[in-house]
């Protein structure tokens, strides 16, 4: 099945955002997923043609990034963080329970069942929400402080088509709709949900309680300059790597 004219126009629109069109490839592949439900050979061909590169180039990119799926994704993508901190805090137990409950393994999709939406289950790496561990992602929306029970409730609600809201965001849209936003075509949900979840505000709350603030701007203790030369800066910086590089660069010079 070839892509619609409308999709081709949008793919070109993405490429045109950048000084060099190929920069659009990642969002273009997100758009392919939103219309095709996965990365299809047709989608790869279309991107290649628009960008004037080979299908092999596009495939190389599509297979490198983990959000691109070669097999059809369900209506909802459900991720469970099993990187160390979340795993220890219960992510492993949650992932195990969901595999049992849904009858699927990692990166597998539930069978079509009458009246039920499908779910692709995957264990994911750290999603930058460790203060809300254990964390799950529903179509890449945060589901914070999960338990095996709340995880089962979440997937049951998603399957039944009940409205589910992110703990720090809007109602969960479908995976395809989410992919469209990632392609750079915003929906109208930016204003939904809070500015911050409770854990994000803990330090601020304590500071307010105790009257702690940053100093008043009048304070001036002179220069804060910590390094005057590149060499000095590199030696202070935390990367041994940068250090060797700079020394190398200097010796080349």
């Amino acid at each position: 099945m070839t892509l619609s004219e409308e999709t081709l126009v949008e793919l070109k629109e993405i490429a045109a955002r950048y000084p060099e069109p190929r920069s659009g490839l990642l969002p273009m592949l997100h758009l392919v997923q939103s219309v095709e439900g996965r990365i299809t050979p047709e989608g790869i061909e279309a991107c290649a043609e628009i960008l004037g590169i080979t299908a092999a180039d596009v495939s190389g990119v599509a297979t490198f990034y983990t959000m691109y799926k070669r097999r059809p994704v369900g209506d909802y993508h459900v991720g469970v963080c099993t990187n160390t901190l979340c795993a220890v805090m219960g992510g492993d137990a949650i992932f195990e329970r969901l595999q049992d409950h849904l009858g699927v393994g990692n990166d597998e999709t539930t069978d079509d069942a009458p009246g039920l939406r499908s779910i692709t289950l995957e264990h994911v790496e750290c999603n930058a929400a460790c203060d809300y561990a254990p964390v799950m992602m529903a179509n890449w929306e945060f589901m914070d402080n999960m338990t095996p029970e709340s995880a089962v409730q979440l997937v049951d609600d998603l399957r039944a088509g009940n409205e589910v809201r992110s703990t720090r965001g809007p109602r969960i849209v479908t995976w395809r709709e989410a992919e469209r936003v990632l392609a750079g075509f915003p929906d109208d949900l930016a204003d939904d949900g809070p500015a911050a979840g409770p854990a994000s505000l803990v330090g601020l709350g304590i500071a307010r309680e105790r009257g702690w603030t940053a100093p008043h701007p009048e304070t001036d203790s002179g220069s804060g300059r910590t390094a005057d030369t590149k060499q000095e800066a590199v030696e202070q910086a935390d990367t041994a790597r940068a250090e060797t590089e700079t020394k190398q660069e200097d010796s080349d010079a």
Binding site: A195, W212, A214
Partner: peptide, 14 residues
């Protein structure tokens, strides 16, 4: 300075 100095986080609760 105080123990906590909200600058970047200062408006998160707004």
């Amino acid at each position: 300075p105080d123990t906590l100095t909200p600058v970047l986080t200062d408006n998160w609760g707004d």
